[in-house]
């Protein structure tokens, strides 16, 4: 995937977020998942190697699971708190930095200024 998708995705998410926040508040959960995954994907787009894409997909899947469970358990006092603390917070605490270190690209971020 090349960097030309960056502004298109960013603009679509920005418009979607504004519309959701005003008219469709129930859509903010899925939009949050998409926005965070897209933020991780920003820097992966246009890289010579695609080794970070599985990490981005894993983060998106975990966020979707965490937010979905939180929404499901919102009226359950102990289960809701436990889900949020364990699944959304504690489980990824060591995993995400480890994923970053594993997918760290020594080649650098590549072209940043439109150089040929």
């Amino acid at each position: 995937m090349d960097r030309s998708v960056v502004p298109a995705v960013a603009a679509a998410l920005a418009l979607g977020w504004l519309a959701g926040a005003v008219w469709v508040p129930d859509a903010l959960g899925p939009l949050t998942v998409l926005a965070v995954a897209a933020a991780f994907g920003l820097r992966v787009a246009g890289r010579p190697t695609g080794r970070a894409w599985p990490a981005v997909a894993l983060v998106a899947a975990w966020l979707a699971l965490g937010f979905g469970g939180a929404f499901w358990l919102q009226a359950q006092p102990f289960a809701g708190l436990a889900w949020v603390l364990v699944v959304v917070f504690l489980v990824p605490l060591p995993v995400v930095p480890w994923l970053y270190a594993r997918s760290f690209d020594d080649a650098g971020p590549g072209d940043l200024e439109g150089r040929p």
Partner: peptide, 17 residues
């Protein structure tokens, strides 16, 4: 003590983001 406490879920998601 629910997943979103006394906060409406849209506000919780907005603060998260």
């Amino acid at each position: 003590l629910g997943s979103f406490g006394a906060m409406p879920p849209p506000r919780a998601f907005a603060l998260y983001l």
